[in-house]
Simulated assay, not measured.
Amino acid sequence: MQMASSAVLRTYLSQKPSQPFPDFYSYMNNKWPPNGDNIWRLYQQAVYSSLQPYSYSNVLRYTQEIWSVRFERGDTAAFDHTFAATRAYRDKKSMGKKCFADFNNGRIGEIGGIYAVPTTKLSNVSHGLTQAAPQLKMYPY
């Protein structure tokens, strides 16, 4: 059982209450906020749901947005590894992923792809880049 802070309790008792200070369970009326697993489950249901004003899911919208990235003559492609995004994962070791690799169009800054990779070696990302190349609509040089 969680106890109220001593300052709150002292303030309450200094007012000479006629009833005892309510315990945490009574104060919460036996209702609890959703835990992290329930929030994640609800998020997954929402992000994959096609019950949106535009009639397709957010996942499909994000995918189409990434696929619409174009590279034109003179554009540069930036490639980067980021470790900050993997900090959000609780069980990174079982995933076997060390970081995320992404590439984007340097002129407009749009991301053309992102991959979870086990190391920072280019060989870990080369398959993803090869798969993404036809969808990038790259200008032939």
Rank of each mutant, 00 (worst) to 15 (best):
M1K: 06
Q2E: 08
M3D: 00
A4M: 09
L9V: 14
R10G: 09
T11E: 09
S14R: 15
S14E: 12
S14C: 12
S14N: 15
Q15D: 14
P17W: 09
P17Q: 04
P17M: 07
P17I: 07
P20H: 07
F21S: 04
F21E: 00
F21N: 03
P22V: 08
P22I: 08
P22T: 03
D23T: 05
D23R: 06
F24L: 05
S26H: 15
M28T: 13
N29A: 15
K31Y: 07
W32P: 05
P33Y: 05
P34L: 14
D37S: 11
N38P: 01
I39D: 05
R41N: 00
Q44H: 10
V47L: 02
Y48W: 06
S49T: 01
S50K: 02
S50Y: 01
S50V: 02
L51R: 02
Y54V: 02
S57D: 02
S57M: 01
N58P: 08
N58E: 13
N58I: 15
R61F: 15
Y62A: 14
T63C: 09
Q64S: 12
S68R: 11
V69F: 04
R73P: 09
R73T: 13
G74V: 03
G74E: 04
T76C: 15
A77T: 07
A77F: 08
A78G: 12
A78E: 15
F79H: 07
F79P: 04
D80C: 12
T82M: 12
A84D: 14
A85S: 00
T86S: 11
A88H: 13
Y89T: 08
D91H: 08
K93D: 15
K93C: 12
S94P: 04
S94K: 14
C99L: 01
D102S: 12
F103A: 06
I108W: 07
I108D: 14
I108M: 10
E110C: 10
E110P: 02
G112H: 05
A116D: 08
A116T: 06
A116P: 12
V117S: 03
V117T: 11
V117Y: 04
P118A: 00
T120R: 06
K121N: 03
V125L: 04
S126T: 00
S126H: 02
H127N: 05
H127W: 05
H127V: 00
Q135H: 14
Q135I: 06
K137G: 13
M138F: 15
Y139S: 09
Y141Q: 12
